[in-house]
């Protein structure tokens, strides 16, 4: 077991290192902006003194690396700064009711997790089932239709799928709601009802990818000599799948799921915008358009962390599911 613990420790360390480098890349990208933030926040009309004061407030008078490390330190302690929009608001009106970025992001992060989680909950079992069936009955009518359906879904932009669903399930047949403007304090049932269409959109997008990958890896697996051996032992088709194919399919399936959950992270951005869902994706797009740097930085860090965490989990699960590593010679 020693070697497996060592491999996992290595992966974990690599994950942390990647996250550190990613944070540096984000910091450098953002600081590649011409001019400075203080000017950007205050607008052209601001006096020189006010801008200088703001610059001092933001710590922009400090050296580059010091700023990076203080930013990094703040992130680790959960301090994501204050958004420019808030500051601008404060400096113009003199108010001091500042909402920090962390407070702004937290409820939206929860909302996004709901959406992604709901979508994943439908998409994962659905696509694994369709993928396995398509692999078992490959080149059948079912396989062909599933393949064409999946290609169509992959080829459509997320917003197209979203609007088609709105058209058919919210406008023509008012089963669900065309917008998902959830408010704090709603019940679980209401939340799921609001989330139905955005989650369905994401499901369709992700299922297509996941189903194709599952099909490919299962077909690959079914061609292995040990599957033929199992059939030549007179084992029932069901048992061949459950006992012989599935344990070996774990690693590829874990990777397929991780890859697609990671894809969900990107998918939520467009879907949240279409359904005006108050999630982190919509916040990100808004702040990108308003160039609200502290919010942008924070959102990108959150997206990247989620992405890295997913891949890391998949990596570790894959290692754990490998009999060669679990039972070394």
């Amino acid at each position: 077991m020693g070697s497996i613990a060592k491999i996992i420790a290595q992966r974990l360390a690599l994950g942390v290192l990647t996250l550190l480098i990613v944070s540096f890349v984000i910091f450098v990208s953002v600081n590649a902006l011409p001019g400075d933030f203080a000017q950007a926040i205050m607008g052209q009309g601001a006096t020189e003194e006010a801008v200088t004061a703001m610059r001092k407030d933001l710590g922009l008078d400090q050296p580059y690396f010091q700023r990076y490390f203080s930013w990094l330190g703040n992130i680790i302690t959960g301090d994501l700064g204050i958004s420019f929009a808030q500051m601008n608001f404060a400096s113009n009106l003199g108010g001091d009711q500042l909402i920090s970025v962390a407070d702004q992001i937290y409820p939206r992060f929860i909302n996004t997790m709901w959406l992604a989680g709901f979508a994943a909950l439908i998409a994962v079992p659905l696509s694994l089932t369709i993928g396995v069936l398509a692999a078992l009955y490959r080149n059948s009518m079912f396989d062909r239709i599933a393949n064409i359906g999946a290609l169509t879904s992959i080829s459509s932009p997320e917003f197209f799928i979203a609007y088609i669903l709105v058209l058919f399930l919210a406008v023509l047949n008012p089963v669900f709601l065309p917008v998902a403007e959830v408010t704090p304090g709603i019940t679980l049932g209401e939340r799921l009802y609001f989330l139905a269409l955005p989650a369905l959109t994401l499901t369709l997008v992700v299922t297509a990818h996941m189903m194709r990958m599952t099909r490919a890896s299962i077909i690959n697996l079914l061609a292995s000599p040990y599957i033929e051996m199992a059939r030549l032992k007179g084992v029932s088709p069901m048992r061949v799948i459950v006992k012989h194919a599935l344990p070996n399919a774990l690693a590829p399936i874990i990777n397929v799921i991780a890859l697609n959950l990671a894809y969900l992270i990107t998918g939520v951005v467009v879907v949240e915008v279409v359904f005006t869902y108050p999630g982190i994706g919509q916040l990100f797009v808004d702040s990108v358009i308003n160039r609200d740097i502290p919010v942008i930085q924070a959102c990108v860090m959150i997206f990247a962390s989620a992405y890295i965490l997913l891949n890391l989990t998949a990596d570790i699960l894959t290692i754990l599911s490998n009999p060669k590593l679990r039972h070394p010679k």
């Binding site: 000599p225 051996m229 007179g234």
Partner: peptide
Amino acid sequence: LLGKRIAYVAQSAAASFNPAHKLIDQHSEA
């Protein structure tokens, strides 16, 4: 009949044994 009255021994045993199970479990399956 397969496995019970007619059995098969493949060319590559390394590929024809399921990597996820112990030898004896595969032995007693049939």
